[in-house]
Design a protein around this nucleic acid. Structure first.
Lengths: 147, 147
DNA sequence: TTTTTAGGTCAACCATATTGACAATTTACC
DNA sequence: GGTAAATTGTCAATATGGTTGACCTAAAAA
């Protein structure tokens, strides 16, 4: 009986992950829609924003997608002048990506919508719960069974 | 300075959600690959498993996708005899979906891979942290700004 | 009887991803 | 210097999963 309750609790946790993640992406998705952009563009904007002068291969390592999958959305961001290619360092093969002013504006808007959402929740639940949440998420993220 | 630290913490939380969710879906994705199925099929199997004799429209309400988007993966699950259409109740319009024996076997395998992953983490962090995690996720999931 | 609800299907389209192939450039090594 | 390997970019074909719009049947509700 206790095991049945435990199983029900774990099923609830599966659904919490699904529904929480869906709700979490929803705000940014609406902003992106105004610009005709998708989540692929968002992820590029976000990580280039966090890591100015990041190289393509480093971005691919983070996103774990193929270079072909990165190419199209990145080209669009370059064409729309949201991302720029900085002067290469000593290795002239690598392109160093950074946000333009417009790119930074959009990225800030997207990121703010998500940090606000998280801050609202964290404020409600308090610091201890936030810390515990981070701990669980960190453990999930570095699942050894993950590819 | 404190605000900068807070902002950094919120950015970390964004990434935790992204990386944790990705790691969480990875195990099931590998099982699905063996069967040539995708996440769309997984979600159908999962929710039909949780709600035997669910009607199509109820499934659409949960998944929040169009009936056209549901149609193809559901037809495939029916064709592969993983889901069956039960005899309708008093309303002869509605089809009541349930898992077949094979469907239940696959769904159990998929769900077990995820509940095990969650159970491993929850065991590490303890009940209090699990409870706090649930609280944060529940708040995230019912974001009033969500569509 | 008319309207609404539930479902199914077709078409056109878009976003995101894949693999494979190939070229250009640059670095690294012998 | 010359060759091999690595990095980036691009093309094509393909798959999945989603969208909207349109149109159909059948059954329930008004």
């Amino acid at each position: 009986m206790v095991d049945l309750k435990r199983q029900a609790g774990l099923l609830e946790a599966i659904e919490l992950l699904y529904f929480a993640y869906r709700a979490f992406t929803a705000r940014a998705d609406r902003i992106l829609e105004h610009h005709g952009l998708g989540r692929a563009h968002h992820r590029i904007l976000y990580f280039v924003g966090r890591h100015p002068d990041i190289a393509i291969h480093a971005l691919l390592d983070i996103l774990k997608i193929s270079k072909q999958a990165l190419n199209a959305p990145l080209r669009r961001l370059l064409a729309e002048d949201l991302v720029s290619v900085g002067a290469a360092g000593h290795d002239h093969r690598t392109k160093l990506l950074r946000l333009t002013k417009a790119g930074h504006t959009l990225e800030s808007q997207l990121t703010a919508s998500q940090t606000e959402q998280l801050a609202e929740v964290f404020k409600k639940v308090g610091w201890d719960a936030e810390k515990d949440w981070r701990q669980v998420m960190a453990h999930l993220a570095d699942d050894p069974h993950s590819p």
